[in-house]
Design a protein around this nucleic acid. Structure first.
Lengths: 241, 241
DNA sequence: CGTGAATGTAATCACTGATTACACAATTGA
DNA sequence: TCAATTGTGTAATCAGTGATTACATTCACG
């Protein structure tokens, strides 16, 4: 990928790299308390978490494909083989990154929904869709890792599947409530569900995949365009008054 | 990428590899006619096209990320450095692949639209959407190359941008006609355009990105689901009778 | 026929993910 | 207290990849 496009650099590595010259002797061992934030020992102490954080950072900087195990190790100040202890493969690291991202995603969505009235399911559905698109546009790299589906298998992670299933169940519940309150024109909730998902997912990906310029959508108006298409869709499925 | 996940193979290369042992001497030079299908000379004669074809093939086999310049060269029976003459970088190769794929895409769409009556713009709009989703689902790898937007820049290729602009213009024209005939509920064509695009693009990507299982859509019913969501959408934007 | 432009080869380089043997540290149990 | 076990990081290595250069060959055109 893009990692190969920058040969004349990197050799004089960025971060301090934590000199590793006089090694064979004993290690500083200064802070012995391992409160999850004490480096400088032979054993890192919190490598797993730091690697995930570094990977997230890399994804933010150059997209999901720019995440490399070695660079993550480098940023953690650790040898290239060290991550192997925690993640047998790059995909396992990406999977962990996805778990973290998905967790944040779910929290964000839940918060948005909580801020709306339970009396109006369709309004909640709208808010759901908007929160979905907003988060995706605000965290493009994370969203890409979650959704692109080529960095990991959903069967691998229990947490990942659970978080996802919860979002789907939430969608279904909102639609059932809306139908029960006579807010919907059609009763084929399954189709509405898939269509709604396709709409918000498609919009989010259009942004992430860089389609907006071609389609004449300025970044500054992305949010209001999201509002507009949600309105169009919801008005389309709502029972006319 | 996934290329790294298969170390114990590939060494005993697949295809015949066209033995390259006794090289320093003169080359067969049998068929001298260069009708675009005569190999066996020092100069390949049609490398560019063959490389694109090989790349398309690789994309079909293992997704867009599985495309490697070296493997394409290998399949073309040529040294790893040869493609450089035709494509300065991997992205340039991918760009050419995208051009080819986009051309096929446009042809397919145009054919589908041509098979509908010009008297009913909204029906054409529907057919457009269906053709879009069908092609994407039938040619997932090609579609990914075209749309993922990380293999090339749209500014690079004139043909690419033209083909794309034509599809967008087609969408706009159909909507204008539909509005003129009083088929639409709303007159905000821009929003309808973006929403429609997000819908079909999102559905196509859901399929390609492997979201269907999680959302309970079986592959066998993908086509009819596509019909259903298009119907839902079009009914939603159509003026009620 | 011969010369220059195209085009392929060979050989490198830096980078990546993966994997092993080894070194060191932390924990545990007697 | 101290040895053994278990966990965790290091060093070294391998094959694959994109990129780039110097060199070889061929083709096309004058």
């Amino acid at each position: 990928m893009s990692k190969f496009a920058k040969p004349p650099s990197r050799s004089a590595s960025k971060l301090p790299a934590r000199k590793r010259a006089a090694r064979p002797s004993v290690v500083p061992r200064a802070a012995k308390g391992r409160t999850a934030t004490s480096p400088k020992t032979y054993h890192h102490g919190d490598l797993r978490r730091v690697l995930i954080a570094a990977a997230l950072e890399l994804a933010e900087e150059g997209g999901a494909d720019a995440v490399s195990v070695r660079e993550a190790a480098r940023r953690a100040g650790v040898s290239p083989g060290a991550p192997f202890r925690h993640f047998p493969s790059r995909n396992d690291l990406m999977s962990a990154v996805a778990e973290e991202a998905q967790r944040r995603f779910r929290v964000s969505i839940a918060a948005a929904i909580a801020g709306t009235s339970a009396d109006d399911p369709l309004a909640r559905f709208r808010a759901f869709g908007m929160a979905y698109m907003r988060w995706a546009m605000t965290n493009p790299a994370h969203f890409e890792v979650i959704s692109s589906g080529k960095y990991f298998s959903h069967d691998q992670s229990e947490a990942l599947r659970e978080d996802n299933d919860e979002l789907i169940a939430m969608t279904e519940q909102l639609l059932m409530d809306a139908l029960a309150q006579g807010q919907l024109r059609s009763s084929d909730l399954r189709v509405i569900k898939i269509a709604g998902r396709a709409l918000v997912y498609g919009f989010a990906r259009m942004k992430i995949d860089g389609h907006f310029p071609r389609w004449g959508v300025a970044d500054a108006e992305a949010d209001q365009m999201a509002e507009a298409i949600i309105t169009l869709f919801v008005d389309g499925i709502a029972r006319p008054v």
